[in-house]
């Protein structure tokens, strides 16, 4: 029982990371109907942004690991990733908006390869140790919790879950209660009608990329707090899993992405804990395929019927 709960806790904190990355896939898909393949690499950029900025920002916050310092690093990484996301969309995707989606997809694959190879060139191919921006240790659970006090919960995990919850709620508020959020939803329902109603498509798309990329950047930092080894190819696997999470939840659906991320994280932890780490990826994909065969548009997605 306690072991199962432990796997759940581990899975949840990994799932939170996937959920944050999956948001970017799903938001971009909602607005532009295309898979931004380079999104996983934005997450890697976020981790490296933290890697290079942490020493200076920590010093600014008074030196040494601290909440304030970590928050600064997080914000810096999110800002940089947002800028990178907007830039990539502006240069590589916007000129292709009228082209078939496959063309944009290949361009995105190109950008992804560029970020990975460019990353290896700029940051070096070997894994780097991420600086400690917050003291990560196991929390002593009160003995009064009985059996549950045996659970290992780390400060990092609490921070990951807390930050993810805050970011998700903030995103929800933006999408549901701001003008830009409304424009975003309008665009995803009907791009032509939205633009005829005065929605500035380019601005909304830029905003979507900014928010989605910022979330991925945050995920990069949050990962690095838990597993302080980062490398330029770390975005491939995480991006793939987050993409799976987005599809599982129903791509284009924001709560779906969050749900999918958490489910994938927990599933992985259970497979690793109870079966074998080597079966982690095959089982994740097998579950995805089964779910899609039963519900072709994902768990929360609405089926699209083609008009004849």
């Amino acid at each position: 029982m306690i072991e199962f709960l432990q796997q759940l806790v581990n899975g949840l904190s990994q799932g939170a990371i996937y959920a944050l990355i999956a948001l970017g896939y799903t938001m971009v898909f909602g607005v532009l109907r295309f898979i931004n393949f380079a999104h996983g690499d934005i997450y890697m950029i976020g981790a490296f942004a933290g890697f290079y900025s942490a020493p200076k920002l920590l010093a600014l916050a008074g030196g040494g690991p601290s909440f304030a310092g970590a928050a600064l690093v997080l914000v810096a990484a999110m800002a940089l990733c947002a800028a990178a996301g907007v830039l990539i969309e502006r240069v590589c995707y916007r000129p292709l908006r009228a082209q078939p989606r496959l063309t944009v997809l290949i361009a995105a694959i190109g950008v992804s390869l560029l970020l990975e190879n460019g990353g290896q060139f700029a940051f070096g191919a070997d894994p780097q140790a991420f600086p400690e921006i917050i003291a990560d240790s196991a929390i002593d659970l009160p003995a009064s919790w009985g059996e549950f006090s045996l659970l290992t919960i780390t400060v990092g995990q609490v921070i990951v879950l807390g930050s993810t919850a805050v970011l998700l709620l903030a995103l929800r508020a933006v999408v549901l209660h701001t003008r830009t959020g409304m424009a975003m939803r309008a665009l995803s329902l009907n791009p032509l009608a939205a633009s005829l109603m005065g929605v500035n498509t380019d601005a909304v798309v830029s905003f979507t990329f900014a928010v989605g990329s910022a979330m991925a950047g945050a995920a990069g930092i949050l990962t690095a707090i838990q597993q302080p080894s980062i490398d330029p190819l770390m975005g491939i696997n995480a991006g793939l899993k987050a993409f799976v999470a987005a599809v599982l939840g129903g791509i284009g659906n924001i709560p779906g992405a969050a749900l999918g991320g958490v489910l994938i994280g927990i599933l992985e932890a259970l497979v690793v804990g109870y079966i074998s780490p080597t079966y982690r990826d095959p089982i994740v994909f097998a579950v995805l395929i089964v779910v899609l065969l039963v519900r072709p548009s994902g768990l929360l997605g609405k089926p699209e019927r083609e008009k004849v």
Partner: peptide, 22 residues
């Protein structure tokens, strides 16, 4: 037969990864 476009892409990707995993 049931999936198209992006969903099909991810399923074929998944099959490739499953084969590799096996």
């Amino acid at each position: 037969l049931r999936l198209r476009g992006d969903y099909l892409a991810i399923v074929t990707l998944g099959f490739g990864e499953i084969i590799k995993g096996v």
